[in-house]
Each structure stands twice: as C-alpha cells, then as structure tokens.
Design a protein around this nucleic acid. Structure first.
Lengths: 164, 164
DNA sequence: ATCGATGCAAACGATTTGCAAACGT
DNA sequence: ACGTTTGCAAATCGTTTGCATCGAT
C-alpha cells in the first residue's frame, strides 16, 4: 500500500531530477513518432519538455502558460494536439477529477494508482491499496462483470488546509 | 455488501410500483418548492413524473425524449433547469460516468452506493461494499486527509454482453 | 517534393443564461 | 399584480477541426 505525494501545490512536493527524467522518457516517444511517421519539432519538444518537467497534474491552461513563457505564439490547439499524442504514446494520462477540465499526469514509469484530491487547495496525492484492488475484482465478478478498469477518487481536505 | 441491479438496459431490471413511488417522493419536493417560494407547473410536473418513473440513470436526451412524448414543446433548457432543481432538492443525483454527458439517478430513499458500468451496453449496477468504504477512510487518514466524498466506478463487460 | 505541424478562426457538444411572454400564487 | 416558469436563441466553456502556411524528412 504505497503512497507518494506528488501534488504541485502541496508543501510536501519534492522535485525529481528533471533533466534525466525527461531524456529517459523521451526515447519511447521518439520510437512512437518514428513508427507513426510523425515529426519532431521545436514547438512539440517545448511542450513535451514542459509537460515532463512539471510536478504533476496540470491542466491545459497552466501548461499553456508555462509553454508560453518560452514561446508566446504557441496556440492552445497545439497543446491539445500534443497532449493527445502523448496520451496515445502512453507517456501521459488524462484525468478528469470533475472540475470540468482535464488534467494531465506523467504516466511513464509509474504503476497503477488512484487519487486523493483536496477539495480546498486541489493537491493531488496518489495512492495504491491492494486490498481495495482485490475487493473491486470481487464486486465485479459477484455481479457478473469482467472488470476492465476503474476510477477511484477520494475527495477531502488535506492536512495543511485543515491546519488553516 | 448488498448490490442491486437497476440497469435500464439489463435483462435483469425489474419494475417497481411507479405510482406509489412517485407520490411518496413528490411530497418532499412540494415542501422544498414551498419553502423557496417556487411554483408547481404542468411542465415541471411532467418532467418530475417522467424522471421518477424511469428505471434509472438516464441522460438529458433520453429524458427529454420521454417528456416530449407527452408534450412535444418542452425545451431542453427546462429539463436542465428542472433536473438542477431536483438535485438541489435532494431527489436526484447527477452522475458523470465519463461519457461526456450527465446521467441522472433517483436519489430519494436510497443509501449511498457506487457503480459498475458495462462498457459495451451501458447498464449500470449499483453496489455497496463496506470493506471498501472502511479502507477508503484508512487511505485518507493515512495521508492526512479528512474524507468528504468519493467517486468509485468500476467499468467492465456485463454477463449478458459477454454471452454475446 | 511530400506529408506532418502549427496558428487562427470556426465548429462542436453539453450546459447555461437573457429575455419577453405565459403562468401560478 | 407580482414573481416564477418557459421557450427560444444566444452565450459559455472546454476541446476539436478545417484550412492555408510553414517546417521536417
């Protein structure tokens, strides 16, 4: 039952070595692009780097904001297109926490996990609970379902927000 | 760990006594309307009756379709407004199963439950698992969160769909 | 050269809202 | 009468797409 804090807005967030991480993750992307006869490009690279370098779970608006600090002419459409590409390539997960807009998460190198979301500050904490995973399987088969995937989100108030 | 099948499209769905159910549920609504100085109306009544009479989990399009069989001039806007009202009054739950549009569920008289959704035919099965509920609390407190609510959906293929 | 990538504006789908007319109290 | 409800059309919001151009292979 591991649980790692990765929230951007949490005091607890810690940085990883971005440069190394980026390069490591960008190889599978290159393979994906090559296989599909797609190109590399400056704008694409910038968006991918920005995405891979961010702590986690950011929406399009935030992502675009970051990207534009380096290249102000990038359009939302391109960011949407690039994120769709990254999702297809398996590098990103698109999550919908019910806020009305999608947030993206770096997928590569991470095992399955679910999320705890602070309703006040928005921090996202990832968690895995094997017991829950097992029970889900049981519930599904008990009802005659073959389980394919699930969505499990816990919403509450995080420690720092409760401390006011 | 009860689980009740209430899917509209499932062969297993069974009808309840609609007339009685409706009247029983409409009293709290009348109270709510009176308290807020809101009116009753023919169109409103029609929408509410249609909603309360349906098996479960239907989207706006389906609901509007039903309503229009009795009164073809009802507008989508009114159905949206009425459903918002019913949610506020506590008679309906608005659920988002990730299909892009909201589905509504009769809330009154039902305890908390989560959902199993067939990815092929769309049937929705409700389930409750106390063990999972407990584990969620544990996960939350372990991470310093005060749990407020959760969203737990299992997606898979139901029995009848697997049977082809 | 050829085909993908990009910016822009228009298109979209679900839902909401402004407004004037019809209705319930 | 007064305030609410309704239908319609227009407005929003997040996201996608058509198109002409620019860039990568």
């Amino acid at each position: 039952m591991a649980s790692g804090v990765t929230g951007t807005r949490a005091g607890t967030s810690r940085k990883r070595d971005r440069g190394e991480l980026r390069d490591e993750l960008k190889e599978p992307l290159r393979a994906f692009l090559k296989e599909k006869h797609l190109h590399e490009s400056k704008v694409r690279d910038l968006i991918v780097d920005t995405f891979l370098g961010m702590e986690d779970h950011m929406g399009l608006e935030a992502l675009l904001g970051e990207v534009r600090r380096k290249n102000a002419s990038v359009s939302p459409a391109t960011v949407y297109r690039t994120m769709r590409l990254l999702v297809e390539a398996g590098l990103a997960h698109a999550r919908d926490f019910g806020s009305g807009s999608t947030v993206y998460e770096v997928a590569a190198g991470k095992a399955h996990h679910d999320h705890l979301v602070c309703e006040r500050c928005g921090v996202v904490v990832e968690f895995v609970d094997e017991e829950i995973e097992d029970l889900q399987e049981k519930v599904a088969s008990k009802n005659g379902f073959e389980l394919r995937r699930h969505r499990h989100e816990l919403f509450g108030i995080c420690e720092s927000c409760r401390a006011r």
